[in-house]
Amino acid sequence: MKAPLEPADIASKVQDARQGVQTAFAWLHRTFAPLVYAIHLGMTSREQAEELTQETFVIAFRRLDQLRDATSFGPWIAMIARRNRPRREVLGRDLAESGEPVWVGTSPESMALADEALRAIRRLPGAYRETLILRLVEGLSGPEIAALTGLTPSSVRVNLHRGMNQLRQALGVSVQTEGEE
């Protein structure tokens, strides 16, 4: 597993960004874009999620002085992302069809599974939804998710396992109980 982020690194970059250091903005964007995108992907189509991700960072960087605890940049921008909802509610059928990826080499079966799984994840409670997208879509480990979201590792683990069980039920596959805390 890759080493998770250090709170001191996050605080240092936030301080630099407040001073106007462009590389610090770039670092914050590069590091936290998967988190923000995961939140938006849980709400809307991929195309809109990418646009909303950019919007969320613009909003956050404008308000950076309002962030009290620099180490809490992750939970803070996550809150902004959750409030920055799509301008109109997207119908369920639109979520898969508009602007979703057609990756070179992806089989139709795989695309169908991805589409079905993403729809099911979007119906899960928010905490499970975001954690599962970070794990299954972004490929992040538990410690990395905890470092990005500011959740405790045990909360992340519970969200992962409960969310995964609910996802398995929604997809009609056997539910695993082992490994759950």
Partner: peptide
């Protein structure tokens, strides 16, 4: 199941377009 889900959902991974990356100096 986990392997198939990870592989399939990986296609939705965040991949910023060139214009969307926050550019440094």
């Amino acid at each position: 199941v986990l392997q198939r889900l990870t592989s399939a959902l990986g296609t939705y991974r965040y991949a910023p377009r060139q214009g969307n990356a926050w550019s440094a100096r």
